[in-house]
Amino acid sequence: MASAATRFPQPGPAPIVETSWTAKDLLDTDTLSLAEINLILDQAGAMKDVRQRQGKLATLRGVAVVTLFYEQSTRTRASFEMAAKLLGADVVNLTASGSSVEKGETLIDTVRTLEAIGADLLVIRHGSSGAPYLAARNTSAGVINAGDGAHAHPTQALLDAFTLRENLGDLKGRRVAIVGDVLHSRVARSNIWALTALGCSVILCGPATLIPRTLEDGTEEGRYMVTDSIEEALDGADAVMALRMQRERQESGLIPSLRAYVRDYQVNSARLALARPGAIVMHPGPMNEGIEIAQDVAHGITSTIEEQVANGVAVRMAILYHMALARQRR
């Protein structure tokens, strides 16, 4: 009885989502339960679905989202702003320059001022590790860590996990290689906790001076390991994530030269051949094409780099939506 009228699948029983988001803040992925991570990923899927159909919603009408950036960033801030606006929230953007921050106002005073003005959610990017924790302890507004020093970048990790899940399905037992300046990478750190919670094996790889020496403590669980061999890291990988290599690392002598880095650690097609066929290629951006990642790989058919950016908006919509709800319920 296949007729034209039944061309789309009949909906099954609605999924019963058992977890709710109750936390005031989102500071890192290490304190999230698997259920919370799955909630955000599932909800991001629904957001992506809604987003494909329509323009702006009025869901978060009256909710004020403030982005407070003490470091330069274009994509993360734009992504948060887009996500908030698509949900109908009011968005105020503050940068360290052009505000009281430059006049020496403390982080705590700034945060309290923004709360008094009526901020519901604060999206904070800061060069000092731990700064959003300090902010979160000193305001009743929800704080979202948009990157703190070399510590954490939870929304990036969640959008990476979302992208991985969209491309690979269930992540249990998948191998994800993260290559580059792991030591200074907040993206790598937050990905370790999110991806291992989802059942991935995470292989951290980079020059000996740029990989952590003590994170090996985690290998006893057999879930992540550290290596200075890119061949070992990429062997059989389901996904390869290249990290941005900062020019300063050369200047401070942590690597001999960018040339040496390219020679030894660039993710290129020859090395990618060691990974599983069809392994996806990721990068948190902004890319230095030709340094940490070869141009043809960055734009190859298995590259998800642009997808990551698009998914970032859906993931941040899910986060903003649930954190705004949690705040209203408090």
């Binding site: 590790s129 731990g130 703190d148 020093g149 070399a150 510590h151 954490a152 030591l183 200074h184 907040r186 750190r189 952590p212 020496r213 003590t214 994170l215 403590d217």
Partner: peptide
Amino acid sequence: EGRVSERLGLR
């Protein structure tokens, strides 16, 4: 420089 600094991203 060690376990905690690497975990917390502190110099």
